[in-house]
Amino acid sequence: MRVDDLSVSFRAYAGLVKAVRGVSFHLDKGETLAIVGESGSGKSVTMKAILGILPKNGRIDSGSIIYDGQDLAKFTEQEFYQIRGKKISLVFQDPLSALNPIMIVGKQITEALTLSLGMSKERAKVRALELMNAVGIPDCETRFHQYPFQFSGGMRQRVVIAIALASDPEILICDEPTTALDVTIQARILELIKEIKAQRGLSIIFITHDLGVVANMADRIAVMYAGKIVEMGTSDDIFYRPVHPYTWALLSSIPDLDTKEALVSIPGTTPDMIHLPPGDAFSPRNKYAVALDFEREPPMFRVSDTHCAATWLLHPNAPKVEMPELLANRIRRNAEERIADER
């Protein structure tokens, strides 16, 4: 799948909200792409655009979403029926509200099979039980007939994953699947997603605001800010060789249990998406911003074959700026640990 220069905007009372501004990325078969960003950075909106489930006031302004030779950005609702669930599935952020509270869990899984694939009820049930087993729900036969409120949060998320897997999709979009869960459960769900991916050869787009979560999940990472991808590269590129000040800030703000460093936070808040500042949207919060940042938006600079970032700091004429010392130390430490682990 390939997303090119995608822009999405919403009509709101205050004006036009440009939620996604020219996002491009590609997803190869069998890889996990993580999209990281603060709330409101447009990561969920991008995914909704891919699935054609933007709210009624949302609109794709430009760009294309090429999947299997077809442009999803131009798909009608009718055409999306062939994609949703069958080719691309979504795992929701909050398993509590994503399940219908008054329908038995089993039926919510089989529904996808009987209604959109035309499978018989009996076969759908067999398949649903298999799925429930595969996502690690014990005692499937009994659980099949229970309602969501009889499940714990982690179990509910497993149900949501089972539903997403029901029609054997090729791409699984996980929209902050662990945000609403306890930390211990989080780890298990992440483990489950990894397992499923390996078993079924899925491609995964993993959306999160927590770089820590994606550290050992993602093959590649895209960092989003204010509707744009500001840095994209392999997991190693982002974690060991970050170049964008925003990525630096994000990485610095991951709590580190080994040191007594104070927790770093990014000053300020995300910009108003209706009246974006001129130039780089991150510049007002960026202590490394150069004058040009306030005037013109930086283009994507290539760092290596796999790594690119949108910051003027990469321009040949830009002043040489090193990443914050704290982060540099931390990266060095992590790298050393990794080498030690590998030995």
Partner: peptide, 17 residues
Amino acid sequence: NSDFMLLARTKGLTETQ
């Protein structure tokens, strides 16, 4: 507008269904 309606659509149901 609830999430479970969105989920119903992402699993391939039509809006009417």
